[in-house]
C-alpha cells in the first residue's frame, strides 16, 4: 500500500495567536510529520509560551513532548508583545490543559535529536525569534546537512513593524538571526512584505467559525482576540504572519518568492534587527535567502479554511 511520504518538521515558536494558527495548519497537513515542538521567548515570556505550546499540542492531539528554550535571547534583553497576545500570550478561548510532560531536553537539544534520528532531511518552521535555531546551529554545525530548510516568519525587506526598521521576531534576537542567515542552510523568509498582505478579514474567520468544529471555533476566537490590537493600528484585517511560514512550504505556488542576499543589522540607532536585501545583487555574494514577498490572499484564506475543515468531529 502506498503511503504518503511525509515531510518531517520541527515547529519552533512563541505562541502567540499566529503561531498557534500556524500549528493548526501544520497539524492538519497530510504532507507534514510534526517531530517536535520547541518554544522560544518572544511574544510572551518563555514560561507562558511553553505552557501555551503544551496546551496547543493537547488541543491538536500531538503525541509529543514540548521542549523549551532559553528564557531570553542570545545577547538582548527580552522584548515581549502582550499588547498583541494578552497577558497569557494566547488570550481568548479556553484550551485543554497539557497532557504530556515537558521534555527534559532543551529546545536546541530536542532539535538536534530529531535531526540526528531522522532518515530524511528535516524542515524547521521558525515562527518566533531565532534563538533556538541559532543555538542549535552553533552547537551542532555537523547537523546542518540534516536540515532540509528553515522556513521563517521574521523580518521585512521594505519595512519594520516594532520599529521603523525592524520586525518583532528579528528585533527580539538579531544576533540569533544573524547566525541563521549566515549559516549556509537553505532559508526561506516570510517577512512583513508578505505577511502584511496575508490579511484575514472578519468575514473570513466568520466563515471558519461557521465550520462549527472545535478547532475552527478556537481559531476564530484567536482571530477575534488578535484583531483587537491589530485593528487599533489601522489594519482592516488580521495580519496573519506565522501561518505564511507553513503555507509557503506547503503551497509555494500561491506565493511570490525572490532570491536575495539578505543581511541582518546588529547595530544602528533605528535599524537594529533590520533585514537588508541587496535587490540588485550588485553589492554582495550569492543570494542566501528565498524571500517571500507577495501572495494570492484569496487562496491563502481558502487553504486556512480548508485546514480548519479537517477537524470535523474533533474531540477536545
Amino acid at each position: 500500500m502506498d503511503k504518503i511520504r511525509k515531510r518531517p518538521v520541527i515547529l519552533d515558536g512563541d505562541p502567540g495567536h499566529d503561531d498557534a494558527i500556524a500549528w493548526v495548519l501544520a497539524a492538519a497537513a497530510d504532507e507534514l510529520d510534526i517531530k517536535a515542538i520547541t518554544t522560544v521567548a518572544g511574544n510572551q515570556t518563555l514560561e507562558k509560551v511553553t505552557y501555551n505550546a503544551r496546551r496547543i499540542a493537547a488541543l491538536l492531539h500531538l503525541d509529543i513532548e514540548v521542549a523549551k528554550g532559553r528564557n531570553r535571547p542570545l545577547c538582548s534583553e527580552l522584548i515581549i508583545a502582550p499588547n498583541f497576545h494578552g497577558e497569557t500570550g494566547l488570550d481568548g478561548p479556553v484550551l485543554p490543559e497539557p497532557d504530556h510532560k515537558l521534555s527534559d531536553l532543551s529546545a536546541p537539544e530536542m532539535m538536534a535529536k530529531v535531526l540526528r534520528e531522522s532518515e530524511e532531511k528535516v524542515t524547521i518552521i521558525s515562527t518566533g525569534a531565532q534563538t533556538n535555531v541559532a543555538a542549535m546551529l552553533l552547537a551542532y554545525p555537523e547537523l546542518k546537512e540534516k536540515i532540509e530548510m528553515i522556513s521563517t516568519m521574521g523580518g521585512g525587506l521594505r519595512n519594520g513593524n516594532w520599529t521603523a526598521g525592524a520586525e518583532f521576531n528579528i528585533l527580539v534576537d538579531p544576533e540569533a538571526a544573524y547566525n541563521v542567515y549566515h549559516s549556509g542552510v537553505k532559508l526561506q523568509m516570510c517577512g512583513l512584505d508578505v505577511t502584511e498582505k496575508a490579511l484575514v478579514y472578519p468575514e473570513d474567520w466568520e466563515r471558519i467559525r461557521s465550520l462549527n468544529n472545535p478547532i475552527a471555533k478556537v481559531v476564530a476566537e484567536w482571530f477575534d482576540f488578535f484583531f483587537i490590537h491589530v485593528s487599533s493600528l489601522g489594519w482592516s484585517g488580521a495580519t496573519t504572519h506565522d501561518p505564511c511560514a507553513v503555507l509557503s512550504i506547503l503551497h509555494p505556488e500561491i506565493f511570490d518568492i525572490r532570491d536575495y542576499y539578505v543581511d541582518i543589522e546588529l547595530n544602528g540607532e533605528y535599524t537594529r534587527g533590520a533585514t537588508i536585501a541587496d535587490y540588485t545583487g550588485r553589492h554582495s555574494n550569492e543570494p542566501n535567502c528565498a524571500c517571500v514577498v507577495d501572495l494570492d490572499r484569496e487562496k491563502f484564506v481558502d487553504y486556512l479554511y480548508e485546514a480548519c475543515s479537517r477537524y470535523e468531529g474533533w474531540e477536545v
Binding site: R158, N159, G160, N161, T163, A164, G165, E196, D263, E265, L266, N267, G268, E269, Y270, T271, R272, A274, I276
Partner: peptide, 15 residues
C-alpha cells in the same frame, strides 16, 4: 550607527 545600514534613510511610511 549601523554596520550595514549607515546612511539609510529610515522612514515610518509602512511600519
Amino acid at each position: 550607527q549601523g554596520t550595514i545600514t549607515q546612511g539609510k534613510t529610515v522612514t515610518d511610511l509602512w511600519s
